[in-house]
């Protein structure tokens, strides 16, 4: 029971900072850069992603023994696209203002890597409740990231927060932050901060390459790399043997 509790805690806290989908897994970049110019838009997008993520995680976890391995990606995409369209219809019907803000990025949640990524990495291997929790955790992580990017971009780029003037209008806003370039800047800086926090919580130091990737433990690339390593050591051994043999032959001749 205690291990269960530990696992629940571990799954829930994982998505917030240590494996934050935007800052640590670097997934779903398109929407996070495009819709983060205003806090309202970021919040609407986050809630949509959260809902779709939890729903699709639950359904895919339920179907995990039913979906054959060969067609799992099309099956996941169908499920995700279904939920996204439902969310889209509901938003259009009941929150038309938010629909105007999100525009094309709402239907694009279908191809948002976070959702397909969680289906592939977690929901198809785990039970329903823990998958729902994983969706909640990752969705909240996405929300935290979106809100923090949008907070900085809206404050500096437009001088407002949630559309309310915060910095006096007489001071011109720093337009750069409302433009895509500013989005990249804010994202990069926040990513660095997040890496620092994650290191503080015992994650490996961020480096280029697979070793410090937050998803490394469950990534198929690891197995591939391991098999490469094995092949490499095999080849090394052969070369070394051949070298030793040549040396021996030479000594013999002497």
């Amino acid at each position: 029971m205690s291990t269960d509790k530990a696992k629940v805690k571990e799954v829930f806290t994982r998505g917030l900072i240590r494996e934050n989908p935007i800052f640590r897994l670097v997934l779903g970049m398109c929407s996070s850069l495009a819709v983060s110019t205003t806090l309202i838009g970021a919040l609407g997008m986050s809630v949509s992603v959260l809902v779709v993520l939890i729903c699709s995680n639950i359904v895919i976890s339920l179907l995990r023994n039913f979906i054959p391995n060969t067609v799992r990606i099309p099956a996941y995409i169908t499920v995700i696209a279904g939920f996204v369209t439902i969310v889209q219809m509901v938003i259009k019907a009941f929150f038309p203002e938010i629909d105007g803000l999100l525009g094309i990025y709402l239907p694009l949640i279908v191809v948002n890597c976070i959702i397909l990524g969680r289906a592939e990495a977690f929901a198809n291997k785990n039970g329903v409740l823990i998958s729902a929790l994983d969706g909640l955790s990752m969705g909240l992580g996405y929300t935290i990231a979106m809100i923090s990017i949008a907070f900085i971009r809206e404050l500096l780029g437009s001088g407002t927060l949630f559309g309310v003037q915060v910095i006096p209008a007489s001071i011109p806003p720093i337009m750069l932050f409302a433009l895509p370039a500013g989005g990249f800047l804010v994202l990069g800086i926040l990513m660095a901060v997040c890496n620092r926090i994650a290191e503080h919580f015992g994650q490996p130091k961020a480096e280029l390459g697979c070793d410090s990737c937050a998803a490394y433990g469950r990534c198929p690339a690891k197995e591939f790399e391991a098999s490469q390593d094995e092949a490499q050591t095999d080849a090394d051994r052969k070369i070394r043997k051949a070298g030793a043999r040549a040396k021996r032959n030479e000594e013999d001749r002497k």
């Binding site: 099309p74 509901v90 019907a93």
Partner: peptide, 30 residues
């Protein structure tokens, strides 16, 4: 696999049709 995919697609389409029936009028009125 083909059968499973078909079933999933059909169920999804059914869900969409139901949602659409519920929201269509509201969206139009909006």
């Amino acid at each position: 696999p083909a059968l499973v995919l078909t079933v999933i697609t059909l169920v999804t389409a059914l869900c969409l049709a139901l949602t659409n029936a519920g929201t269509k009028e509201v969206i139009k009125a909006n």
